[in-house]
Design a protein around this nucleic acid. Structure first.
Length: 535
RNA sequence: CGGAGCGUAGCUCAGCUUGGUAGAGCACCUGCUUUGGGAGCAGGAAGUCGCAGGUUCGAAUCCUGUCGCUCCGACCA
């Protein structure tokens, strides 16, 4: 990660990397530049809201498609509920109000009129009796429907998912990672028993972990959140936590066991087998467009985006190298045939997605655009390759200069295996990175040192780089350390080091289930937890 | 909402201290020459300098206010 930044010199020479600054130089800025260079999204005239551009949207569509299938395999069905929620609904669950009230967009009028100064203003006569909030999450509005849909234990379980947008009025936003409006899916289920609802909560956490691993090539830790990090109104919150390349944790998905809190609030009541009135047990779970941010920060390098093949909008881009007018048509036609041959192949159960880039522009420029967009495999075919019936091939997971000539037939026949190899390699690399920066820590001074950059920045600085001292060096990682469970201790560590308990691992990550003594207080602890700085 | 920085061509920025009505590189368009790699030369189009006031003969440059963006903090999928 010590590659020098790309310099735009007057001679048009480019330096080693396509993205400037590099990850090591300024990670936060690098992220923004990757998003831009890959043409994924841009900021909009609306504060905190993003425009998702076609390439970014295509990745999200692939994410949606894969997850949607997994939800359906586990018995869920899609439905849709209103964008607006009556203010009184939010109020039904005390913790829920407290958690979301501060970041709600509120609709108070239903008509505009021309005011005294000629500008449009909300019409005073059109004020709503009850304000509506734009959903920050849909527990309460879906609860209202569930209350009607559930009468008997025979109506349960109720397994619903919705794909939607939600709004949380965040102070600071970053494309994909935190925007005021974001897209997500939210699963909402109701069950007859606590055990069943807990099982559902865990099942969906597992679905998320599998999706992250198998599709995103992003290893995650499954675990339970501490009380301080719990979803407002939940009994228990579970999450999948991934490590980004700056070694900070990203909460990539959550699954909540809501107990009977929301069924009481929304009166989701049913008659059980013993003819008794009972409140249902509910769950909710969601992942958002933040996953795209996680994808970027897990795999991308100093040349831009790297997309795992299973989510790539295009698996292969075929670039005709046709400089002379007399050969151009033939080369392009040949490329078209190769592209079609590739499309006959299947990868991960779907046809191979191929982009033929026959645009009239310089080849080098064209190739770099695809590098920055992260297409897994690039193929360049010129007159000589055509003559030899071979292709010139480069993989996005290898240095861009590393290219090889391959016989066309061999390449086409092997494309699925190649894509799988890239997919597997990306997971292996990300896993190795995470493990390399995960450390069991039992001594408090070692813990403090682990989360303190060796140069510049104050201990609490999260490494994003400040206005004054420049970016803080990348440091830290996951600390597997014992924790006594005292919320005050967690708060103190957060204040002092900017570090929180990301989760109490449930999947055996790091062998965390052995007893020991709290790394901060020395008090007894049942298990190690994952501490990290986070997004 | 508290702190810092910044808003000048599509992008990145220079000019501002020492006020005199706007520059560069990249991108874009045209032509020629090139071409297994993000080309070279020539020409061209493109900004009234975030917005609103003020000072001044004159403001991108000084002053005030305001809006927005980025980063830090608080909040958070």
């Amino acid at each position: 990660m010590s590659t020098p930044a790309r310099q735009e010199s007057t001679t048009g020479q480019r330096a080693a990397s396509a993205i400037s600054p590099t990850r090591a130089e300024n990670y936060a800025e690098w992220y923004q530049q990757v998003v831009r260079a890959a043409d994924l999204a841009e900021t909009s005239p609306v504060r905190g809201c993003m425009v998702i551009k076609p390439w970014g949207w295509a990745i999200w569509e692939n994410i949606q498609r894969a997850l949607d299938a997994m939800f359906k395999e586990t018995g869920h069905r899609n439905a849709y509920f209103p964008l607006f929620i009556p203010l009184s609904f939010l109020q039904k669950e005390a913790d829920h109000v407290e958690g979301f009230a501060k970041e709600c967009a509120v609709v108070t009028h239903h008509r505009l009129e021309v005011g005294a100064d000629g500008k449009l203003v909300p019409a005073p006569s059109a004020e709503l009796d009850e304000p509506l909030i734009v959903r920050p999450t849909s527990e309460t509005i879906i609860g209202a429907s569930f209350a009607k849909w559930v009468q008997s234990y025979r109506d349960l379980p109720l397994l619903i998912n919705q794909w939607a947008n939600v709004v949380r009025w965040e102070m600071r936003t970053r494309l994909f990672l935190r925007t005021a409006e974001f897209l997500w899916q939210e699963g909402h289920t109701a069950h007859a028993t606590s055990e069943e609802a807990v099982a559902e909560t865990m099942q969906m956490l597992g679905v998320y972990a599998r999706f992250a691993r198998d599709w995103m090539a992003m290893p995650v830790v499954q675990g339970e959140k501490t009380a301080g990090e719990r979803f407002p109104g939940a009994v228990n919150t579970y999450s999948i936590e991934a490590m980004m390349q700056d070694r900070k944790a990203l909460q990539a998905g959550t699954s909540h066991f809501l107990g009977q809190n929301f069924s009481r609030a929304s009166e989701i009541v049913f008659l059980n087998e013993r003819n008794e009135q009972a409140h249902a047990w509910t769950t909710s779970w969601g992942v958002s467009t933040r996953l795209v941010g996680g994808l970027i920060m897990t795999h991308s390098d100093d040349d831009g985006l790297v997309v795992p093949p299973r989510l790539a909008p295009a698996h292969v881009v075929v670039i005709p190298v046709a400089h002379k007018a007399e050969t151009a048509a033939a080369v392009t036609e040949h490329c078209r045939r190769v592209a079609d041959e590739l499309r006959q192949q299947r990868f991960a159960g779907e046809p191979v997605r191929v982009e033929l880039d026959a645009r009239d522009m310089r080849g080098g420029d064209k190739a770099w655009q695809w590098i920055k967009r992260g297409v897994p495999v690039r193929v360049e075919i010129g007159p000589r390759d055509m003559e030899a019936d071979s292709v010139f091939m480069a993989r996005r997971d290898r240095p861009h200069k590393e290219k090889s000539g391959v016989p066309r037939g061999e390449f086409v026949a092997g494309i699925a295996a190649l894509l799988q190899e890239i997919q597997d390699g990306m997971l292996a690399r990300a896993t190795a990175f995470r493990d390399e920066h995960t450390r069991r820590i039992d001594a408090r001074d070692e813990f403090d040192a682990f989360f303190t950059p060796s140069r510049g920045g104050r201990p609490g600085d999260d490494g994003d780089g400040g206005a004054e001292g420049g970016p803080t060096e990348i440091h830290g990682g996951f600390a597997l350390s014992h924790f006594c469970g005292d919320p005050a201790v967690e708060a103190e560590v957060k204040e002092r080091l900017g570090v929180t308990v990301r989760c109490i691992p449930l999947d055996g990550f790091g062998g965390g289930d052995e007893p020991g003594r709290c790394v901060i207080t020395g008090r007894p602890s049942e298990r190690r937890v994952v501490w990290a700085k986070s997004y």
